[in-house]
Design a binder for these strands. Structure first.
Length: 434
DNA sequence: TATCCACAGGAAATCAGGGTGT
DNA sequence: ACACCCTGATTTCCTGTGGATA
């Protein structure tokens, strides 16, 4: 490919040569992935014991109780369950339980959950991704469980179960799953729900609580010293010897402890710091790398999120950007966003206009993602609306938007809305009210 | 004190696009 | 070809509402 500017050309050969010659930082960076299951799980003894006790009877062919695991993100819920399931599988028993993992955020509909279970068990016949009625699949699944799983136990691990319950049909499928055993002759099933919302039980159907929610295991957040232990263990595997300066792990642990003790975050920080050191061809990972890693992680997440949004949502964000760019003092309300959105949408061919209702949902999604914040406020005679603020740096937003071709060309468009005197007047009144 | 603005946000309906078995 | 299934995105319809203003 030809270089357009010709004043700088990336020398890939040289890069690889230097890379291989440069200092080695990592030994096995997989150990810093949150999916990695270590030999020991520090500070989860009581949870391991609890789960082991609950599930042990599967080895004898009895039905283990269904239960729930609570805890914030990065408190080791999934890891602990995988850990116990591994150990359970290593026992020499004639019964080998099945473990089926379902992330309800990915496998997000009743149909797909049933299909996923079926397809995981069945090697040969697969259920198509759509098309069949649910009850047919349910019956097929029952048949399969009885024949293929036979006289064994099938654990259904529903990760992020709270998301499932929040959706329509979620309670029904959960109810169906809890009732599987009543319709099975040979095989037994047991449900393990994982949730990071402690209050999620309240939204659960009472019929389900009786079979699923009576027993639960709580995963408390890690404190800084516990995080240090976890990181130390992983670092031994992940890094070359001596590359970590002694202050690195305590710093990562402290930073993650501030964020409700999220081990995932701590591991990410450590990995990113290592990567930064590697990229800079440094021999050691230092506190400086960790500090940079923190900013990078935050930005990476935001950039990825914005780039991954639907185009219409990107337009919403663009509207906010344009108002802010041309009138930084403007008090932004949802109505303004919609007006500017309509305006710039008209500039783009082939993009249809969404309704206010839909845009309102997009604004909520952006709020949830932490990119903007919105506060419902009543402006008296000026109605009830949302005051919207950008929560990320506008430079970062600009950088993201510039990378979207269709949007790039309208980033200098000054919205008509913010130029009108009427709006300026209204805004002055708003400023006093806010 | 009643009014009334400009929305918020829930629920249900609709549509298009992916399928099925017969 | 036909009737029907499931999903996700969106529209349509709707009720609710805090507080400045007349």
């Amino acid at each position: 490919m030809k270089n357009q500017n010709n004043n700088y050309q990336f020398n890939i050969e040289k890069f690889y040569k230097n890379y291989l010659k440069g200092p080695r930082i990592f030994n096995n960076r997989d150990a810093l992935e949150s999916s990695y299951i270590p030999e020991d799980l520090p500070h989860r003894d009581s949870q391991i014991k609890n789960i082991a006790e609950k599930t042990a009877c599967a080895l004898l062919g009895d039905t283990p109780p269904s239960f729930l695991c609570y805890g914030m993100t990065g408190t080791g819920k999934t890891a602990t369950i995988r850990y116990v399931s591994q150990k359970l599988a290593q026992q020499s028993s004639r019964i080998k339980p099945w473990w089926i993992y379902i992330n309800c955020n990915v496998v997000s509909t009743p149909y797909r959950i049933l299909a996923h279970i079926y397809n995981t068990i069945s090697r040969s016949e697969k259920i198509p991704p759509t098309g069949l009625p649910k009850d047919i699949i349910f019956k097929k699944l029952l048949g399969l469980l009885d024949s293929k799983v036979g006289n064994s136990i099938c654990f259904l691990v529903l990760d992020e179960i709270d998301i499932l319950v929040g959706k329509k049909g979620g309670n029904e499928i959960l109810y169906d799953l809890t009732r599987l055993n009543e319709n099975l002759d040979n095989c037994k099933t047991s449900i393990i729900g994982i949730s990071n919302k402690l209050k999620f039980r309240e939204t659960l159907d009472p019929r389900i609580i009786s079979s699923l929610g009576e027993e639960h295991i709580v995963f408390p957040s890690y404190d800084a010293s516990e995080l240090r232990d976890i990181l130390t263990e992983r670092a031994k595997i992940a890094f070359q010897e001596g590359v970590l300066k002694e202050e690195v792990i305590p710093l990562c642990a402290a930073l993650a402890a501030k964020e409700h003790g999220d081990a995932r975050k701590a591991l990410q920080l450590l990995r990113k710091a290592g990567e930064l050191a590697e990229r800079a061809q440094n021999k050691q990972v230092t506190a400086k790398h960790v500090e940079n890693a923190q900013g990078d992680l935050e930005n990476d997440y935001i950039i990825e999120y914005i780039k991954g949004m639907p185009f219409q949502a990107q337009l919403v964000l663009t509207s906010l950007y344009l108002i802010l760019k041309f009138s930084p003092e403007h008090i932004i309300i949802s109505g303004d966003i919609y007006d500017v959105y309509s305006e710039i949408r008209g500039l783009l061919p082939g993009i249809r206009q969404l309704t206010k209702r839909r845009i309102s949902d997009y604004i909520n999604e952006l709020t949830l993602a932490g990119i903007i914040s919105a506060e419902v406020k009543s402006m008296g005679h000026y109605g009830r609306t949302k005051i919207i603020k950008l929560d990320i740096e506008i430079e970062l937003l600009e950088k993201c938007l510039l990378e979207i071709d269709k949007i790039k060309i309208i980033l200098n468009h000054k919205p008509v809305l913010i130029q009108s005197d009427k709006i300026k007047l209204k805004n002055n009144i708003f400023k006093k009210l806010v």
